[in-house]
Nucleic acid binder design. Structure first.
Lengths: 239, 239
DNA sequence: GCAACTTGTGACGTATTTGTGACACGGAGG
DNA sequence: CCTCCGTGTCACAAATACGTCACAAGTTGC
């Protein structure tokens, strides 16, 4: 449920009512937290704020947020420590905020189980962008059925008529994206941003080629016309 | 270890209805008890809380918990006294929490009938780990069956077709993790966090090598294709 | 102290994946 | 009917990920 909600949310804000993803913000600086709470709410997240590590940890259990934004310099607990303890029991994405921008800190954080890292000062939009990346990465694991096609995010498998398609990682990501919102048209740019992320393949017709390959594999399994081409824009799956 | 134990139980709960072990927590500090209740529930125990010795003793009779976690510094009764009285009528495992960490107390507690002893401050995971040890000692636990493979968490044994595989500790941990949720794909990072924990093997292809060894042992016993490679991500067992 | 075993590392071969450019195709508009 | 632009298709080169091996360091038990 979270899964779908988030996978879908990127483009869907305007069209349907859906549960807002809940962000837990653990930050002791009152000014920053107030500002961020506003910005995040604005970006259509529901925000829970805690100003110390202990109550932050409690909130993780009690509220089960979809994502955690964690300040490194908390009065009681070390950010890394919090990350480690969250990781003991859950895979909730964690984004760390910090004043320092050195490599060691970054590595230490990621080793502790953080998923991303943002050095102050930063723009709220950047944080929001990274939040969305993490949400998509983690919660694109829903099981989605579209006609005879079945997309299982947790297993990273796609079936047509109970026959598995052997998709490469990129192919799977692409299918998974399109299937997040059956019927919705994804532009090439949107697809590249979501599937390729920071790797940016700025040139060429990669998307088209991959779509072609996916179609071919679908055809081999007996599926036709699942992926619709929208001339001038991009692609969509039938919905 | 803790992480794994929980993962196993968490995963098992989806498929079979299994009674959660019931823990009786006797603790007067309200903050600690709230946190522990949450942590324990999270670890998939059912928790009963009492905040004094008398009602604690009553609860032992009435609820018949599988294990008792006992704070030493209670307002009405001495922890040792409680332990002794429980022992008059039952062998229910008892774990004592205490502020002091001296040897005499420890000996006194164990003499009174306690099974284990934990000095504050402690991490919840440590408590959970010790709880699991005690439960395992007293009751046998989680057995997972996946096709012809059988994973016995309590005995730390894996069988294929009733033939035992001789797995090294690490190998067992790895298999056990993957089998906690058959079908679910575990990323290398996730595997490292869960199997290696804080020992951090930051470099190299350890996971792959171990998987290869496990596969080889499975093959020797007649099992093929149990562990699926998910390119670009990690591994999963068929399910 | 020796032997057997466990564990992590680095190197290497191989199969798959992935991006690119060239070109064919086809519909929309003139 | 012809042209043009956006797509489909193909083959190829480069990059990458994974499986495997041999080895060294560390443990355990005898």
């Amino acid at each position: 449920m979270t899964a779908r909600a988030n996978a879908v949310r990127a483009g869907a804000k305007e069209e349907m009512v859906m549960k807002k993803p809940c962000i837990l913000l653990v930050e002791d600086d009152h000014d920053i937290s107030r500002l961020l709470t506003l910005e995040l709410s604005d970006a259509d997240f529901s925000v829970i704020h805690r100003d110390n590590g202990i109550s932050g940890l409690l909130a993780v259990r009690e509220q089960e947020p979809e994502l955690i934004v964690l300040d490194l310099g908390l009065p009681d607990l070390d950010g890394a420590e919090i990350a480690r303890r969250v990781r003991k029991t859950s895979e909730t994405p964690i984004i760390i905020l910090t004043a320092a921008d050195d490599v060691e800190t970054k590595v230490a954080m990621l080793n502790a189980g953080a998923d991303d890292y943002l050095a102050k000062p930063f723009h709220a939009e950047e944080l929001i962008a990274r939040i969305n990346v993490q949400l998509r990465r983690r919660y694109s694991s829903a099981v989605q059925r579209i006609g005879d096609m079945l997309v299982d995010g947790a297993r990273r498998q796609v079936f047509w008529d109970d026959q598995e398609l052997r998709l490469s990682p990129r192919e799977f990501e692409l299918v998974n994206l399109l299937c997040a919102q059956p019927g919705r048209v994804y532009s090439r740019e949107e697809i590249e941003r979501n599937v390729w992320g920071d790797d940016l393949p700025p040139s060429s017709n990669v998307v088209d080629v991959h779509i072609a390959n996916i179609r071919s594999k679908l055809r081999d399994a007996g599926g036709f016309g699942i992926i619709r081409t929208v001339r001038g824009i991009g692609y969509a799956v039938k919905g």
